[in-house]
Amino acid sequence: MNVLLIDDKGSPYLLDTIRCLCNDKGMNIFVVSFERKPYFNTIPYSKHVNKYIYLTAIDEKDKVNKIIEFVKEWKIDTILPIKHRGYQLFSKYREEFNGSPLPPIPNRNDFETISDKWLLAQWLEKHSFASPKSYPVAIANIKKLNLPFLLKPRWDFKDNRIKLLHDINEAMEYIENTDFVSENFIFQEHIQGDDIDISLLAKDGEIIAYTIQQGLVREAFSFATGIEFVADAQLLAQTKAIIHDLNWSGIAHLDFIHQKESNSYYLIDFNPRMWSTLIGSLYAGVNFPLLMLKTAKNEKIEYKGYIETSFYLAKPALLHFRKELIHKRKLTSLKNSSWNYIIKDPLPEIMKGFGKVISIFNRSTKKEPPPA
Score class of each variant (00 low, 15 high):
P103N: 03
D116P: 10
I68Y: 01
Y87C: 10
I68G: 01
R108E: 15
S100I: 11
R85S: 13
S115F: 00
N98D: 14
E112F: 05
P104R: 03
G99W: 00
N98I: 06
K66E: 15
S115A: 14
F97T: 07
L120T: 13
F97S: 09
F111L: 11
E112R: 02
R85D: 12
I82R: 04
T78Q: 06
E95N: 14
W118M: 12
S91E: 11
I68Q: 02
P103Q: 05
S91I: 12
S91H: 06
R85T: 09
P101Q: 02
N109F: 11
E96T: 13
D110E: 02
I82L: 01
S100K: 05
W74T: 07
L80F: 01
L89V: 10
P101I: 09
Y93C: 09
H84R: 04
E95W: 08
P103R: 01
I67S: 03
W118Y: 15
F111S: 10
Q88M: 09
E95S: 14
I105C: 10
N98A: 14
P81R: 00
D110C: 08
V71Q: 02
D110T: 07
K117W: 07
I105D: 07
I105A: 10
R85G: 07
D77E: 13
D77M: 04
L80Y: 03
R94Q: 11
T78S: 08
E96N: 15
Y93E: 03
D110N: 12
